[in-house]
Design a protein around this nucleic acid. Sequence first.
DNA 1: GAAATTCCCGGTACCGTTCCCGGGAACGTT
DNA 2: AACGTTCCCGGGAACGGTACCGGGAATTTC
Lengths: 338, 338
Amino acid sequence: MDKAATIKDIARRLHISTSTVSRAMRDQPDVNADTKKAVLALAEELDYQPNKVALSLLKKHTYTIGVLVPNLDYFCATAVKGIDEMALEAGYTVMVCQSNESYGREVVNVRRLLESRVDGFIISASSQTKAFDHFKRLQEKNIPMVFFDRETPDMDTHRVVLDNADGAMQATEHLLQQGCKRIAFLAGPPALSISNKRKEGYLAALKKYKTKTDESLIVHCDFNQQYAQVATEELLRRKKRPDGIVTISDRIAIGAMLAIKEKGLRMPEDIALVGFNNEPVTSLLSPSISSVDQPAFEMGKIAARTFIELLNSHEKPPVSTITLKPRLIIRESSRIKV
Amino acid sequence: MDKAATIKDIARRLHISTSTVSRAMRDQPDVNADTKKAVLALAEELDYQPNKVALSLLKKHTYTIGVLVPNLDYFCATAVKGIDEMALEAGYTVMVCQSNESYGREVVNVRRLLESRVDGFIISASSQTKAFDHFKRLQEKNIPMVFFDRETPDMDTHRVVLDNADGAMQATEHLLQQGCKRIAFLAGPPALSISNKRKEGYLAALKKYKTKTDESLIVHCDFNQQYAQVATEELLRRKKRPDGIVTISDRIAIGAMLAIKEKGLRMPEDIALVGFNNEPVTSLLSPSISSVDQPAFEMGKIAARTFIELLNSHEKPPVSTITLKPRLIIRESSRIKV
DNA sequence: GAAATTCCCGGTACCGTTCCCGGGAACGTT
DNA sequence: AACGTTCCCGGGAACGGTACCGGGAATTTC
């Protein structure tokens, strides 16, 4: 890379001081109109761009946000797009790191981003993360951070989350209204907050409708479509098989769907199904799959906005939790024509 | 954010000079074993992390890669994952910017990343980009860059691309072998290199099988599923409707599929269909959609590796073009049982 | 006409780190 | 005893930019 033009180059060629050039570039007072014009002209000619690295060193912030996500699937990619949008508007750039749902990778990524001196973090934690020291260290250093989607227990942080319980509740309630009597719940890793919240909603709906809960109908299947398929096959082999399934993700719902089709059962007549995320694919399958929609793009934008407000306020604001509302999208997989 | 410990803090507390601390931290000679131990211990205690920003200023490189992609859909997200993987391994961090297929946004992103002093760029150009000044300026400044997927005409740059012509050729040839006589081609924006290359492959296959080409069967439909659906509806309304469709993306193929289903036509008996990208969704639809698989993850990894090699070699290596091979995955949408 | 004000500009320190150079102390070599 | 090595260490400059302070010249004010 050729060395880029610096403020010194301009100063030298114009026989003025770097201070003056600096002032001229930033449209500050205390600089003659003619010199300013000369500076600006030469800057244009040399394609001068202020060196953000030097500024970062001086001002002690980098105008970059470290974004930590488990992956870049539909939901996260959409959320990242929202973050990006907001960040760009506010003059920030974004460093995205994927943990691939691995705790070790997450720790490494935090470290790297910290070394790069990001101004703070926007985080959706890996599902395998059970220790939170790496996050707590950030908190001790008073580094701003905002969590979104995947919450972390035992930490006082800003969060932007979905009302997960409500989402699962809507889904479960819907199936109950359609006449389902035995509703299974395909959950994620046992330690995952969103999975547990959704389970609460599922249980609450059953309780509300005075349906007895059967713990054996709750199956943990990671985020794996394959695994979900196997788990569903097992469910369908039981003598008292479920007539409805609520899942915590569309991937899992698809796994379930494959198992149901394989078995030759009809959807929704024999068994109704609801996914979570409202990925575009759900509307394309046949039958199309009902799913709980979460405003991913919005969530990203709000997380970024919260983060930036956090940065700009110097008196530390109290931690806030912003909860967004899910919306059940009913499709063929659960619409029982009466 | 609390101020992080610096090398000066350590030096002061140990009554030694910053030079010595610096040497100790980097395991250099010319430092006594005891002092080194003391430095390391104190560094640990203060959770000292070298300030990369200061280093960047001094060394004139930031160990960050600017990644420019049109979006984060399946293909790009997978490629970015490959880039990320490779970058992490080599000690680089990645700044991902999405252009949302907008030329203006792309220009802005180049500028921002340049201000952030990334060491170079890995780029897949926006489909709306027809002027390349923003890229050429990079080239003039000798800033390393590698293009992947979306090529740019008239520029001598390193590239990692798919053999797009071959991919479309395989798809078209396959349909011809299945007995299709009138094969339509759903293309992308007319200026998009990958679209044009694939068109060439399509035409080459027709020629090879001595099938006469009909320009009216080539329809440009952006990357829009909706538009593809409308375009296909129009195709199907013609008196001499096509009996096969080759598309340049799975999104477009899905649009086409919706139109075909709407019309009540059978796939593949009445009309056969092949997509491009081999997104997971293609295997889930019914009928499942044949698609040309491209090794996105690999492409990302190779692009990153090429980029890093480019950085490390100081004598400028000649521009290289690495071409990866596509692989046609045949599914129900085009498998005609004879 | 002296004083005060305005208008411009330059010098210097600083951000955190590395690198180069120089030099003192201890040791070994003749 | 004089010299050369080796081992450690510190001082300064540099990276590119901004902020603060101080000051000369021109202009205004009384």
